[in-house]
Design a protein around this nucleic acid. Structure first.
Length: 581
RNA sequence: GUCCCCGUAGCUCAGGUGGAUAGAGCGACUGCCUCCUAAGCAGUAGGCCGCAGGUUCGAGUCCUGCCGGGGACACCA
């Protein structure tokens, strides 16, 4: 492994509203006032950062949106707005461009002001308070205790934790919860599978039914049970013995799951057991409550709920004719506890194969008076692993699928987390091992980490040269190079980007941002190679320019570190090549 | 059959609330470096954004219909 100082993601602290980009605010105000003089109610004015640096530091399409209500040409309106913006300080010029965009160009010092904001806030830069400290629950992973965590769980762990971190960064107080089904049929199946392997180990005739758990881990569980409890259960399939085996299996498997998750840097605030819903009578209470709504009926000996009343495709069985509950019932009971525990905001992260349950759980909750969209769902697609362009299955242990632990062992936590996050949840994720194991800039994780390490190395070098860097009062208006200016705007965008990523529950947006930023950083850094362009190096002779560039390097370092930390990825100060292949 | 997701460069994927010339990485190709600051650097090529309609001043983005891929449709979880 590269030697690295692990940087814990900053978590759990709601922060006050940060000092915003005052230029952005001032410009928006000036625009609002200019537009209000045009005689039509303006909707929300959007001040955007153009993707093309030639289009200024900010841009707006407001003139175009006003063209229809005003019955005038967009460019004409833009001209009017433009002339009303004289005297906004920090603004060097305004251009009307294209079909009617207003492009704003700022003074170098105003653009550079972002460095003061970043360095003032440090580790907190990028945090905001749109959540106002409200409580929100993210439920994720929620694997059954019937086997090891597989790749899909890995993606879900990264995704749920990433969404949780994004919410924390935007001012929510987040509760991470893991729900596991330790009741019902699959538990019996698990116990029976182990029982069969146990009997076989003792030389008894026994065979696994087709629907039993097959993986090699079942054999291991049978072995460890035998080691712990001995050989005294030959041919004994009493409920008591099966229960013993079940308890043993659940304990072992859960411990393994916890170990995998902890090793992955994912920690839960609460592990919620399905069986507890039966133990404390919540399942029965839910049946009663639903019955009281008048939306239930009996048919074929089963008890149904009219979920179609709330948009479900068909009505659902709550209690089977044999008297036992379907999973639907504890699911509703479980979500009621979420509400009752004060979580009126809940996000469930699940595999898209569960999408069929969304409508019915919501319907059950709606029948009991909860709001229609409760809870919110983020459904993600599957993960496949590829190497050399071929799909690989490298698990010896789990049978047909690869485990999360094996993958993390191969590629490391940073790479695994990043790769799981870098695609939109609803897109298939193809995990390319060739790229994941590459340690150059080709690997997006390393690319970003290298960019961070490069900035750190500048400070190390400056320290060697006896240059005091961080306390220098830098004048950012000296950063006039195109690459520098672009970087400044890129850094300024970070807080807005975190807000958007949180709002959209989309950690991949952060990955995308970090890779773009790292690309700019690496190019800026290489451009200042002392043997080629000594005048573009950070550590130039001119003390003022040097201080300004060091401030930029510092700003970059902070933003990359904050961004990586948010994703649960470390920010090493130096990268040492791993040779232990 | 019904419902959900996806379809963007050879491959893997980004593309805010509809805006300017559709981007990145890998791969390919062309230069350069072997000095230095990091296991390279700089650049080029590559696109009917699945197809067809529609809405709009403007559509990869919104609507409808088709085609293709994946998933879900139990008194299983």
């Amino acid at each position: 492994m590269p030697s690295r100082r692990p940087v814990r993601p900053h978590r759990g602290r709601p922060t006050p509203r940060p000092p915003t980009d005052s230029m952005q605010d001032a410009l928006l105000k000036a625009l609002e006032s200019a537009v209000s003089n045009l005689g039509v109610p303006a909707g929300e004015i959007r001040l955007e950062r153009p993707k093309d640096a030639d289009h200024g530091d900010f841009t707006t399409n407001v003139a175009m949106t006003l063209a229809r209500p005003l019955g005038r040409s967009p460019r004409d309106i833009a001209q009017d707005i433009r002339s009303a913006l004289d005297g906004v300080s920090g603004l060097s010029r305004v251009e009307v461009a294209g079909p009617g965009f207003l492009n704003f160009y700022l003074d170098a010092d105003t653009v550079g002001d972002v460095l003061r904001r970043i360095r003032k806030r440090g580790d907190e830069y990028g945090r905001s308070d749109v959540g106002h400290g409200a409580a929100i629950m993210v439920e994720f992973v929620s694997a059954n205790p019937t086997g090891p965590l597989h790749l899909g769980h890995g993606r879900q762990a990264a995704l749920g934790d990433g969404i949780a971190a994004l919410l924390e960064w935007t001012g929510w107080v987040v509760h991470r919860e893991f729900y596991f089904n330790d009741a019902g049929k699959q538990m019996e199946k698990l116990a029976h599978s182990i029982w069969v392997r146990y009997q076989q180990a003792l030389g008894e005739e026994a065979s696994l039914p087709d629907d039993a758990y097959q993986g090699a881990y079942i054999q291991e569980l049978a072995d460890s049970f035998r080691a712990e409890h001995g050989d005294g259960f030959r041919g004994d399939d009493s409920a008591e013995v099966l229960r013993k085996m079940e308890r043993h299996a659940v304990a072992v498997l859960r411990a393994e799951q916890v170990r995998d998750l902890e090793g992955f840097g994912v920690h839960f605030d609460e592990w919620f057991r399905e069986s507890s819903l039966y133990d404390d009578g919540r399942v029965d209470a839910t049946v009663e409550a639903l019955g009281a709504t008048g939306l239930t009926y009996e048919e074929d000996g089963a008890l149904w709920l009219k979920t179609t009343e709330f948009g479900d495709q068909k009505d659902r069985v709550m209690r089977k004719s044999d008297g036992s509950a379907t999973y639907f019932l504890p699911d509703v009971a479980y979500h009621l506890t979420k509400w009752e525990r004060g979580f009126t905001h809940v996000i469930n992260v699940q595999g898209s194969d569960h999408h069929g349950t969304v409508d019915r759980v919501r319907a059950g909750l709606q029948a009991l008076g909860k709001p229609p969209g409760y809870p919110e769902y983020v459904l993600h697609q599957m993960v496949t692993v590829e190497r050399g362009g071929q799909e690989v299955r490298f698990s010896k242990r789990a049978g047909s699928y690869a485990t999360m632990g094996e993958l993390v062992e191969q590629v490391g936590v940073d790479v695994a987390r990043y790769f799981f996050l870098m695609r939109r949840p609803e897109a298939h994720l193809s995990f390319d091992l060739d790229v994941a194991l590459d340690q150059s800039d080709k690997n997006p994780v390393y690319k970003v980490q290298y960019a961070h390490a490069r900035m750190c190395s500048i400070f190390a070098r400056a320290a060697e040269a006896g240059i005091l860097a961080t306390n220098a009062e830098a004048d950012p208006s000296l950063l006039t190079d195109g690459a520098e200016r672009e970087l400044l705007n890129q850094l300024a965008e970070f807080p807005e980007l975190v807000e958007r990523a949180a709002r959209d529950r989309a950690p991949h947006v952060v990955c995308d941002y970090l890779e773009r930023t790292a690309g700019m950083v690496n190019s800026w850094y290489h451009g200042g190679n002392p043997s080629r362009n000594p005048e573009l190096a950070v550590l130039v002779d001119d003390p003022a320019l040097r201080a300004a560039r060091l401030a930029l390097a510092d700003g970059i370092r902070i933003v990359l570190r904050n961004g990586l930390g948010l994703l649960g990825v470390s920010s090493p100060e130096r990268m040492d090549r791993r040779v232990d292949e």
